[in-house]
Amino acid sequence: MAFEIDNIFKTYQMGGVEVPALRGVSLKVDKNEYIAIMGPSGSGKSTLMNIIGCLDIPTSGHYFLEGEDVSTLKDDQLAVIRNKRIGFVFQTFNLIPRSNIFHNVELPLIYSGLPASRRRKLAEEAIEKVGLSDRIKHKPNELSGGQRQRVAIARALVNNPSIILADEPTGNLDSATGEEIMGIFDQLHKAGNTIILVTHEHDIAEHAHRVVKLKDGLVESDEIVRNGRYAEALQDA
């Protein structure tokens, strides 16, 4: 079991009014699953992603990450969980602009306190996995969008997390580059990683083997789609 979400509610206070974003969501995800979370805006998928990514905690309900209840942790404890167990890939890449590629990828390892030699090795491996070894000294603004997203993926990978959480990872890319990036996620999945895609694009979601659809803060459907176009190709490979 990668994680389990049990009857989670999340309510925001907005000008004295309580606005429910999640109204009792439950979800079990096994190791090495490849899940897409879909839903229109306002469906609560961002809120759910924030909770899965330990950026936020639920108002009620439980979230077990690899068996540990993380739904009541404090800020700094959540920071440790994010650092060690979650790899984020954002729509807007979110790289540190002043730092070069190597340093961007190395950063989570610095926060987990690894010695420099070990950090170098792990960061270089992660960068090699996304095929950017020749750009290691470049700054993010010297790279194309697709390359930046690869850097972000390398950064997500570098701490060997339990979950890779990708929020609209192709939203800022043209479709060809998007496919290229999705190819990397497919590879990562094949290599044994658990991947959560948050998207509203169907052809992106089709890369996943399971699609969870949210609507109005509830799970509307939860389907296994093992016969998706790319899944098929992957199974053949």
Binding site: A79, N94, L95, S112
Partner: peptide, 10 residues
Amino acid sequence: GIRKAIGAKR
């Protein structure tokens, strides 16, 4: 925000 997301503590 980025630094906190990838594990920087307060």
